[in-house]
Design a protein around this nucleic acid. Sequence first.
DNA 1: TGGTTGACAGTCC
DNA 2: CGGACTGCCAACC
Length: 107
Amino acid sequence: MRAPTRFEQRVYEAVKKIPRGRVTTYKLLAVCVGCRSAQAVGQALRRNPFAPRVPCHRVIASDLGIGGFAGHSTGREIRRKKALLAREGVHFRNGKLADESALWPLY
DNA sequence: TGGTTGACAGTCC
DNA sequence: CGGACTGCCAACC
């Protein structure tokens, strides 16, 4: 088990700050943690050593797409991610975020 | 120390 | 409008 680096911890911390019913994008997270690369954020979440502790399902692509989940870009995991978000009041339309106002600016 | 990878993003054709 | 390429930053081997 890899020791979470400061960068990863920063990402997880930011994700944990996301309130229920809100979502954010990889890019926003990247900028929030002081990184200009969304890929680094995606990798940190993909590792996700803090599994259920970090609501990684609240992180979507900048295109408002569902992005990926649990290491999968498509498939049942994605459907689960959508279901989790729907349960929080965030609904998806055709794989895309239905309500853009649900985006969290990550103050 | 150097090269490859990745749950992305933006641009080009 | 859709597919392909490059850029990006950090982690891993």
